[in-house]
Design a protein around this nucleic acid. Sequence first.
DNA 1: TGCCAGGCCGAAA
DNA 2: TTTCGGCATGGC
Length: 278
Amino acid sequence: MLEIEKNAGFISVRGCDVSLVHTFECGQCFRFNADENGVYKGIAFGRGISMWLDDGLCIGCDEKDFELLWRSFLDIDRDYGAITAALPKDDFTRAAMKHGYGLRILRQEPWEALCSFIISQCNNIPRIKGIIERLCRMFGQPVEYSGDTVYTFPDAQTLAALSAEDLAPIRAGYRAQYIISAARDVNDGRLDFLELDKLETADARRAVTRVNGVGNKVADCFLLFGMGRLDAFPVDTWMKKASGFYPGGFSAEVFGKYAGIAQQYIFYYSRANNVNSG
DNA sequence: TGCCAGGCCGAAA
DNA sequence: TTTCGGCATGGC
C-alpha cells in the first residue's frame, strides 16, 4: 500500500519497492549520479532533482511536480513487490533478483532516451555518460539547481540545426551523424512520438528503426525506457539466453543488473502469472 | 598494449 | 537472409 506524504521541500513515498543504486546504476539512464551521502542528483524534464532513501523514497520536489513528472518517471504506481513475489523460486532467479532488486523502469523523455541509446551503441557506460554530459554542456540550456549550474538535454530542434562536425567536441565518433539525422527526423515530423504512442509495439519498432543509426537494439531500449513499453524486448530470446539455453549465456549477476533484461523477466512472469503489473 | 563496449550500415555471399 | 568488415573513441 502506497503512502505518499508532503513534507517541507520533499515528498516521501512509503510502500514502494525501490533501490536507487539499482535503478540509476543499471544503464537505463545516464544523467543521475550519487553524492557522498547516497543522494542521487540528476536532470530530467529540464530541471534538477534529488532523490534519497530515508523511511521510504524521498523526492526533492513539491506535490505538483511529483504528480506531474516524478510519479510517472519512477513508475511509482506499479507494484514491483507483487511482481517479484510471483517470480519462480529457482536458484538462477533468486541470484538474478539479488543483483536487481528494487530496480524500477524509468519513464524518461522520448527524445532524450532515443538520443542516449543511439550514443550507447558499441560503447561503455562511463563513456556514454561523458559524451552525454558534453552534449548537454555544449547545446543544452543552463539551469540553476542546488547552488550549481546544470544543463538540460538539448532538444531535437537545436541538434537538427547542427552538422556532425559541430558535434566533434563531444567525441561521439561515428555516432555523431546518427544523432543529427535522428534529430532532423524528429524536428521535421518524420518521427512523431505522439503518433508512435498510438502504435502497437511491433509497429512502433518498425517505425523507429527507419531512423538512420537505430537498429532493433536501440529501438527496444528507446521503447522500453522512453515510451513505457514493457513489452519492447523480444522476451523469449532474452529468456533463452539468460537461462543458459545458449552456451556463454548471461550470468545471473549480469542478468539481474541490466535493466532491460531483468525487468523483462519480471514482466514476463507477471504476465504469465496474471499478477498486477500496472 | 590489446580487448571490448547494451550496434548499425551496407556490401557480398 | 545471413555474414562480415568498417566505423571512432576510450575505459579497463
